[in-house]
Computed example of a mutant assay.
Amino acid sequence: MVDLTAEDLPLSADFESVYRVGSADAVAEWEQFSTILGLGFDAAGRLYLLDGTDMRAAGRVVVVDASGRHVRNFGRPGEGPGEFQRGTELVVWRDGSTLVADIAGYHVFAAGGAFERRVRETGGFGVVTRRGLRRERTGYQAVVVRDGRYIRRVDMSLEEVQGRMLVEAWNPRAPTEAPPIVDFEDVLNTVGEEWGFEPEVLFDALPTGGVAFSDSSAYAIKLTDASGSISRILRRPLRPMAVTEGMKREERERRLEEERIRQATAIEGDPPPQVLTMINRYLEAQTAAVENMRFYPDLPVVAALRVTWEGNLWVERSTEAGSSEPGAIDVLTPDGHYIGTFPAGRIEMPGAFGPDGLVAFLEADEFGVPVITVRRLTQKVR
Rank of each mutant, 00 (worst) to 15 (best):
V371P: 08
T333E: 05
W93R: 12
R164G: 01
V18I: 15
E258P: 07
V359M: 04
V331Y: 09
G40H: 14
G148Y: 14
A289F: 06
P300A: 15
Q379F: 13
D330K: 04
A360H: 15
R235E: 09
T122Q: 11
L49T: 01
Y19G: 14
G126I: 15
P271Q: 03
L166Y: 00
A288F: 06
W309G: 03
V127K: 13
A101C: 03
I261F: 05
E29F: 12
L166E: 09
A169Y: 05
R149G: 06
G196Q: 05
R137D: 07
G68E: 04
V128H: 05
M55V: 12
G40S: 06
L158A: 13
V154D: 11
R375P: 06
R137T: 04
F197T: 01
E200I: 00
V211P: 00
S97T: 15
F367L: 14
D356S: 06
S231A: 04
M1C: 11
L283C: 08
P175V: 02
R232G: 01
E7D: 09
G354H: 09
P207D: 07
I347T: 13
T277Y: 08
S217C: 06
G246E: 01
E83Q: 15
D25R: 14
R146L: 01
E89K: 08
P207M: 12
V331T: 09
I261E: 01
F15G: 10
G80W: 09
G68W: 02
L276Y: 11
G196A: 04
F109V: 14
V91K: 15
A266E: 00
E320Y: 01
G78V: 05
V108W: 04
M349F: 02
G105Y: 08
Q274F: 01
V144T: 14
E251A: 00
T5S: 14
S12I: 13
A212K: 05
E325S: 13
P334M: 15
V275D: 02
E121D: 12
G354T: 06
T35P: 03
F295T: 07
E136F: 02
V290K: 14
V201I: 08
T122Y: 12
P199R: 08
E310R: 15
F74L: 07
S318D: 11
A66K: 10
